[in-house]
């Protein structure tokens, strides 16, 4: 279970960052990345954060994974307050984002074993899970190659396997299919569905409508750091009177911004 309540995250901009804003009047010292955001992700569901680039999706996921401290509001993961016990929260999540990279010097197997150690997974269990994850994501033939020698897609699959090695109850994936070919992307989404069926709590962010439509049980549309709409795909279509999520999203975007920019 993930409970996000009135989450707010703002940054103070440096002078350099301020100077980069062309419009002098628009220059404000504090940038609000996420504002008053609340939602709950229940076990056995895949929750999608949908929004354009810069909407605040990654910031929200970073706050849930304890890498960022909320300016205001609370985040609870499996009933644990993320600010009070960040280590406990980190022990129960898998966090995947583009900013987090694996050391290219090591092999997938080395890396998997190392992170399993950090999560205190018993050795025998590690080997068993490594085998299963490598087999599922077709990493086995490459498990002893250096990560630096692998293709971009293979690296992404290794990163997914590494993030799941401790079999956590909560999964937080930021743009999980980014940069993957259609077959691999399908494998990842199928795996996420399988994890959902096992009762895991899953939250992903995406700006790809088809991914959200096919994968997510619930969706929160985030625009400019705030929640613009939420619900199941069907309910969002109903709310907006559109036939597909693409059009529904556009409708919500227009309503929020008062027209297409």
């Amino acid at each position: 279970m993930i409970e996000v309540s009135k989450l707010k995250k703002s940054y103070k901009l440096s002078k350099k960052q301020l100077a980069m804003i062309a419009d002098r009047h628009a220059r404000q010292k504090v940038k609000i990345a996420v504002n008053d955001l609340s939602f709950t992700v229940r076990p056995g569901t895949i929750f999608g954060l949908l929004g354009p680039n810069g909407a605040g999706k990654t910031t929200t996921l970073r706050c849930i994974s304890t890498l960022l401290k909320p300016t205001d509001g609370t985040v609870r993961v499996m009933g644990i307050d993320a600010e009070e016990a960040p280590e406990k929260v980190r022990a129960s999540i898998a966090f995947l984002t583009n900013d987090l990279k694996l050391d290219k010097h090591f092999t997938p197997l080395d890396t998997l074993r190392f992170f399993a150690d950090l999560h205190r997974v018993p050795k025998a269990v590690t080997e068993e899970r490594a085998c299963a994850l490598f087999d599922y994501f077709d990493i086995t033939p490459f498990k002893d190659k250096k990560i630096g020698e692998l293709s971009q897609g293979m690296m992404q699959k290794v990163a997914i396997a590494v993030s799941l090695i401790h079999d956590p109850p909560v999964i937080i994936f930021d743009e999980p299919t980014n940069g993957l070919d259609i077959i691999t992307a399908r494998k990842v989404t199928d795996y996420l569905k399988m994890l959902r069926d096992q009762g895991k709590t899953i939250i992903i962010s995406t700006h790809i409508m088809t991914v959200a439509e096919k994968l997510c049980d619930e969706i929160a549309v985030i625009l400019n750091g705030s929640l613009a709409a939420s619900g199941t795909v069907a309910s969002l279509l109903e709310q907006t009177g559109q036939k597909d999520l693409d059009d529904a999203f556009f409708e919500i975007y227009q309503a929020q911004n008062g027209g297409v920019s």
Binding site: E87, R90, L100, K101, L118
Partner: peptide, 17 residues
């Protein structure tokens, strides 16, 4: 270097103190 390459953040998202 690890900060630059993004590998330090991966380490920081584990439960290790």
């Amino acid at each position: 270097g690890e900060k630059e390459r993004g590998t330090l953040a991966t380490l920081l998202v584990t439960p290790v103190k």
